[in-house]
């Protein structure tokens, strides 16, 4: 199949994320049974660069569409790619509920702390000093901490990586996809045009070990509040075994046990 020509800016960190994703999927060998969803924004273009089935969704709705795919065929692996505008602004409700449902699927948020495709407006994780043409005097309010939010909403796998560390990102993505339940990986990425954080991120990230309890994970997550200051923990904050939604739903469990699609019933 002929894929699209890549239209990310030269030097964009999305190239690194694409490489990590390609490595991960190849190493796990899940190409055939895979469906992806993407939101709208620079990250979403990844849909046209990957030769996998999926839906290029509406802005903010890659999570519910992904959940729909999983319920529509629980034998598929589902990966949702979204941006910080997508998941933390337009689709924040879906994010919280996806953590709560614990459906077996992976959410990857490309977080560059800005709306790049629409030329640089602030998102819910932009630092308070962020200025652009809609917020000439800087953005108001505190940035959202999505790691803490996911932990308190009951996500069973919560991780953060840095886009340009392809090796580490690949390792974390592999574990996220292998995790049974809802896995959330936030990839911090610079936008070299509107939010160039290459220096800050690469100098301040440090790798953590997975916490032994939720309090400890919460504490680790609180170390960084997206203000581009201080140390930035990356790695798996939290992972736990929990029953998934499809394991608990008799009809879905039946489809998984017998490796069937709905139409085969």
């Amino acid at each position: 199949m002929k894929l699209a020509d890549i239209t990310w800016c030269p030097g964009c960190s999305n190239f690194s994320i694409l490489a990590s994703v390609q490595n991960t999927i190849k190493e796990l060998g899940i190409e055939k049974n895979l469906a992806i969803t993407t939101g709208i924004g620079c990250h979403g273009k990844i849909f046209d660069y990957l030769p996998y089935s999926g839906v290029y969704c509406l802005h903010g709705r890659a999570i519910p569409t992904g959940i729909g795919i999983k319920i529509g065929n629980p034998n598929l692996k589902v990966i949702c790619f979204t941006g910080d505008g997508d998941t933390y602004a337009e689709g924040i409700g879906h994010f919280i509920h996806a953590c709560r449902y614990n459906i077996d699927m992976t959410l990857i948020v490309h977080n560059n702390q800005t709306f790049s495709l629409t030329t640089g407006q602030p998102t819910p994780t932009s630092e308070p000093t962020y200025k652009d043409k809609t917020m000439l005097i800087g953005s108001f309010g505190q940035p959202l901490n999505p790691i803490k939010l996911a932990l308190s909403a009951g996500a069973s796998f919560v991780a953060r990586t840095y886009a340009n560390d392809i090796k580490h990102t690949t390792e974390i993505l592999k574990q996220a996809i292998k995790h049974k339940g809802f896995s959330f990986v936030e990839i911090l990425q610079p936008c070299i045009i509107f939010h160039d954080t290459r220096k800050i991120l690469s100098e301040n990230i440090y790798k953590i070990n997975t916490s032994k309890n939720l309090d400890e994970a919460m504490k680790k997550a609180s170390e960084y509040n997206y203000n581009l200051k201080g140390k930035i923990p990356v790695g798996i904050f939290w992972q736990e075994e929990k029953q998934t939604l499809e394991e608990q739903w008799p009809q879905l469990k039946n489809l998984m046990d017998k490796n069937l699609m709905w139409k085969d019933l």
């Binding site: 469906a35 509406l58 519910p64 065929n73 879906h94 139409k263």
Partner: peptide, 18 residues
């Protein structure tokens, strides 16, 4: 969680063959 999720999930499920 809401009607927006309802419609988008239904499309996802239908895409998957349901």
């Amino acid at each position: 969680e809401n009607e927006i999720a309802v419609a988008n999930m239904a499309l996802g499920a239908s895409f998957a063959g349901a």
